[in-house]
């Protein structure tokens, strides 16, 4: 029997939409009837914005119901609250907790003391992923909207951070148990990217770092993918420059539109083609990295709750 429930860690370079993907994954699992906890750890309140609910407190709160009868709970993990909770839970340090706060130690531990903040943030996820009601896990899955790709390995590899400092003691033991869960068969680290050079490079570096830290890499999620609009013949004509302004202008006039728009439309088509080429070459690079890929389309109207359902459907293939 597994020691923890399924844990999906969702990372990605800034601007690639990892919060959206984490939320869509939560909706996808809820759509399959599961009870899911969606956590954020960076204090940005991105989940609340996406689901259009008031800012999340340090408290698990139901924010959505899936079509399949599942539920999505959300939690914004705050390191200070997590530390006080941790002290109270494991050490019954109610009074000392307050004294620590008075001496500025809570602030010190959660901002300056290296690694402690990450132990606290991942520690709360660990607690939620192992929590049970009777003999069942409280949640069927826990999803973490994690720090960006550039920091994810260091973030998850908490024991390496702490090991240099705490060689014994409870913080060290806690870090070791967290690592055990992070490396278990129940955990996947999914990387979100867009098909552009820098994020793709960062994704590949991230996969290598995670792998060498023995952290389990799940799917690579290609977000904001522009669907190919052009047919092969139009693509070839644009590439060869054989699509003439005059013939486009004529077609526009025939449809009752301003024929003067023809050069701009052709330029728009050429730019689209250029982006498609760039996307294709980046996709090839990712294909070669050997991880399963999932594509999510660029939604021109932006992401709202309805769009989350749409994206959720495409994530059903994830474990």
């Amino acid at each position: 029997m597994a020691l923890s429930t399924q844990l999906h860690v969702v990372t990605g370079k800034g601007g690639t939409g990892k919060t959206t993907v984490a939320a869509a994954l939560a909706m996808s699992l809820a759509g399959q009837g599961k009870k899911v906890l969606l956590c954020e750890v960076e204090g940005r309140q991105g989940i609340a914005q996406l689901f259009d609910v008031p800012p999340l407190p340090y408290e698990e709160r139901r924010i959505a119901v899936g079509l399949g009868g599942g539920e999505v709970f959300a939690l914004a993990i705050d390191p200070e609250a997590a530390l006080l909770e941790y002290l109270a839970m494991y050490y019954r340090l109610g009074r000392a907790g307050k004294a620590l706060d008075k001496f500025g130690i809570i602030d010190f531990a959660t901002t300056i003391a290296p690694g402690v903040r990450d132990v606290l943030l991942t520690g709360k996820v660990y607690e939620a992923a192992r929590r049970k009601d009777g003999n069942r896990f409280t949640y069927d899955a826990v999803i973490m909207d994690a720090p960006p790709t550039g920091r994810i390995t260091r973030f998850l590899n908490v024991n390496a951070e702490v090991a240099g400092l705490a060689k014994v003691g409870p913080i060290r033991r806690q870090a070791d148990s967290i690592m055990e869960m992070m490396r278990s068969a129940q955990t996947w680290v999914h990387l979100v990217t867009v098909l552009e050079e820098m994020p793709v490079q960062e994704t590949i570096d991230g996969i290598a770092e995670l792998t060498s830290a023995r952290l389990p890499v799940g799917h690579v999620i290609l977000n904001l993918v522009r669907p190919p609009v052009l047919t092969a013949s139009t693509r070839d004509a644009l590439a060869a420059g054989s699509l003439k302004t005059a013939s486009v202008a004529k077609a526009l006039a025939g449809a009752g539109l301003d024929e003067a728009a023809a050069p701009a439309l052709i330029a728009g088509g050429a730019a689209h083609l250029e982006r498609q080429r760039l996307q294709d070459s980046q996709r090839e690079i990712l294909d070669a990295c050997g991880r399963p890929l999932v594509e999510l389309p660029l939604l021109t109207d932006g992401v709202d709750l309805g769009a989350l359902f749409e994206l959720a459907e495409r994530l059903e293939a994830l474990p």
Binding site: L230, T231, V248, A251, I266, G269
Partner: peptide
Amino acid sequence: TTAAGATAELLAIH
């Protein structure tokens, strides 16, 4: 026509 079809695609992108 081919040109009309191509223009339709350009309009979709637009």
